[in-house]
Design a protein around this nucleic acid. Structure first.
Lengths: 337, 337
DNA sequence: GAAAAGACAGAAAAGCTTTTCGGCAACTTA
DNA sequence: TAAGTTGCCGAAAAGCTTTTCTGTCTTTTC
């Protein structure tokens, strides 16, 4: 407990090196007007005192704090954590740090958090929506650059990064077609979610390109296992010939697999199943492990951070950028015969 | 886009109010030496300019930044998000903001993040371990107060908040006893985890207090659904009379329930099942919904924040504080007859 | 050898807030 | 009325870094 009560300051370094604070600053920051031997002396002193410049003083001067706010509404952290990790990667922890705030789906709390972040003079904001559908823009009167991630802003002037759900749907359908499935059905979530329709659009396109149609119009319901179970039962009753099942989420897929097994269908030999989200906990330990569409959220976070960086540097971009999905193949779509 | 290029400063307020910055500061901060009418004028000016004090300047003066770091290793965010929300609650977003960093289970990265946080002059640190077992202490040479949450520190001088796993185990056993189950078995996770043994200890105590023993020594394996399935099959073969099953995690419980159903057992009438973690996504949509032990992570975050606050204010505490668990009763332990 | 140029170090200001201290004016008391 | 109080306000310093500008000393050039 013999801690230095106060961290070393630049004038401590300067005093130890026998120079002025101005010279010390220039030496450490690699400015030109310093003799090599002097610079060396300063560096050694800084080292000895384990000096780190006070970011508050730096920020006060430069007007930048080296911090960004990440405001999320995703209570689970299921989406925002990967996005934050991607942003961390892109920023680099030493140059920029991330304030994570959770609005918990509450508009009042969101306003509150927003004010708190702005009063902290963050250099920029990343807004992560609770669901992938477009969300209300914060409006143009925010004093710092904003990037919307996962859920795009409903205002075209804003900058948004989101997953390409049409592409994700297409990917799933093409995969099932690729393993020879032709009698394909679709179970997805809440019809009020635009993304449910986007994904369906993508896979209908892919089926159409192959000269096919789903065995029946897509089933909309909820994003839950129980809906997956129920829908699968109804579907199999009407269409026992189904050999491929595309689900709008991994939860739905898990429910569907349970129902299929209870109906005596082998997965994937009788029916191949694919989900969406690539939620590892659910997907890897399913019977068999569940193939899924990965939205590559970490990359999404990286891109959001890059966009934000550019905007902070005065190069703002506008509109929605859509990131392609990735296919994760596991046992549920790997035929054994 | 007619934004004020620069946010208003205190001298702007003072000028508008026709007073000095000193008076303006005192007025806004409720210091005594200001006439009421003057104070009123200053408040109105501040309002008009929507003035917010620059936290950098405040921090520079006070030596405190009003920020804390939350360093986690939990890639899922499953534990750290609730903990962070609890901490947010306790701090209050306007007085203290949270830097969330993810070390991703990598010691090098942890050191890196730690340095970044310290160079940002956070007022304190909350360390959230990847697993609930004790973790290596950061050591005493950290210059700010540290509280370990979820995973306690292995150093007794440090301050740690963790879940009372013995209590959690006891709670689960008492619940099953309470609904009349007497032939109880235990399936838990990796034997290398101390908490697995703690939970088992708690429920053995509770059984013992009721004059009972489990039908067989607890099964240790892994924290996965597949282990839950496999263990249940072995267990039921040896002990078909089992009427209560206590699982070390909700994932194990989900696997166990699948196996039980396939063996023709009704849940809960034949066998009642209880899990641990109360992971909503898994628990609520199980068949039937899964009873579980909730570690109350949000409360844990709150307590950690309070402890940290006290430590920052010069009232540090030491040792491990254990928080009781809560029982969440759902259909898997609610007999229907 | 003198004048111009160049190299390098230091003083000072700026960035914004808080606090201490000094001072002015109005007031009370003898 | 003179001395002593209060009550309020403002000047200035402190907190730490960066940058600009000035000044000194050495070097080069004619």
């Amino acid at each position: 407990m013999v801690e230095k009560s106060k961290p070393a300051t630049l004038s401590d370094v300067a005093r130890l090196a026998g120079v002025s604070v101005a010279t010390a600053s220039k030496a450490l920051n690699g400015r030109a007007q310093v003799r090599a031997s002097t610079r060396e002396k300063v560096f050694r002193s800084a080292e000895a005192l384990s000096f780190v410049p006070n970011p508050l003083a730096q920020g006060l001067l430069s007007g930048q704090t080296g911090t960004v706010g990440l405001l999320t509404s995703d209570l689970e952290g299921r989406f925002s954590i990967p996005i934050m990790m991607g942003a961390e990667d892109a920023f680099g922890a030493d140059s920029t740090s991330v304030f994570l705030c959770d609005a918990r789906g509450d508009a009042i709390r969101e306003q509150h958090q927003l004010r708190a972040l702005l009063s902290r003079h963050v250099d920029g904001l990343i807004i992560v929506g609770a669901r992938p559908d477009p969300r209300r823009s914060l409006g143009p009167d925010i004093t710092v650059p904003v990037v919307y991630a996962y859920a795009p802003s409903d205002h075209p002037e804003d900058c948004s990064i989101t997953s390409d759900n049409v592409h994700g749907g297409r990917l799933a359908a093409e995969h099932l077609l690729g393993i020879g499935r032709r009698r394909i059905a679709i179970i997805t979530g809440d019809s009020a979610y635009g993304v449910a329709h986007d994904r369906v659009a993508g896979l209908l396109q892919a089926l159409h390109d192959a000269g096919l149609q789903p065995v029946e119009a897509p089933f909309f319901g909820s994003w839950s296992e129980s809906w997956g179970r129920a829908a699968t039962r109804i579907l199999l009753e009407a269409h026992p010939e189904i050999d491929g099942l595309i689900c709008g989420s991994d939860q739905i897929a898990r429910g569907a697999m349970d129902a299929l097994r209870e109906l005596g269908r082998d997965i994937p030999d009788d029916v191949a199943v694919i989900g969406h989200d690539n939620w590892e906990v659910l997907a890897t330990d399913a019977r068999p492990p569940l193939s899924s569409i990965d939205m590559d959220l970490q990359e999404l976070g990286r891109r959001a951070a890059e966009k934000l960086f550019d905007a902070i540097d005065g190069r703002p971009s506008h509109g929605i950028e859509k990131l392609p999905c990735r296919l994760m193949v596991r046992g549920s779509t790997t035929p054994t015969h």
